[in-house]
Amino acid sequence: MRSRVRKFAHVLERIGLAMAGAASGLFVAVHVGSSIAALTSQGFLVIMMIGGAVGFYLGIDTPPLSFHAPDREHSVNSGGKIDAAEFLSAVGTFLAALTAFVSVSVIVLRENLQIFWTIMIMLGWVVGVAMQIVAGAIARFRG
């Protein structure tokens, strides 16, 4: 019984992360679409929301490599090596969250950013979400 409750809680958590990612993608898409006329379509909004949902679902809460193998010997991660999945997840989540925060701020404060900054927000979002997806794929392939 306890295992089912834990699994259900984990599924709810992952769905919540996906919804947060979709909402973040929507905020970035609304800001970018309001500044770049070619990106005002509903298709662009949906693609940004799906990308955010997939990125946040896969890329947040990736299981890190263990520091020690089960038999107490040092594992692959020992010796100061960087866990690629953990690093990509952290940086990707930061970039995606930062660009979503900036987008919401621009929308709420009714600011008019130069097109350069709008493009940088879009690139930050795309790179951040891509990093999350790659991190999730790495973490899931290794076990």
Rank of each mutant, 00 (worst) to 15 (best):
A37K: 15
W117M: 08
S66I: 00
G51C: 13
F8N: 09
G124R: 04
I115D: 13
W125N: 02
R110P: 00
Q42D: 14
V129G: 04
H31D: 12
F44N: 09
A139W: 02
L45H: 14
V32Y: 14
A29T: 03
F94N: 01
D61L: 09
V108F: 13
A53P: 02
R2Q: 13
V129W: 03
I119A: 15
G21H: 02
A69H: 09
A135M: 08
R2M: 11
G79C: 04
F67G: 12
A69Y: 02
L123Y: 13
V127M: 13
T62K: 03
V126Q: 06
A96Y: 05
M122F: 15
K81F: 12
P70L: 11
I133M: 08
A90I: 03
I133H: 06
R14M: 07
M120Y: 07
G16A: 02
V102G: 00
A69R: 14
F44P: 09
E86V: 09
L113N: 07
R14P: 00
G143T: 02
A135K: 08
A139E: 05
V102K: 05
L95V: 03
A130F: 11
S66H: 08
P70Y: 03
I36D: 10
F141V: 13
S41F: 10
N77C: 01
A69M: 07
K7H: 06
S24H: 03
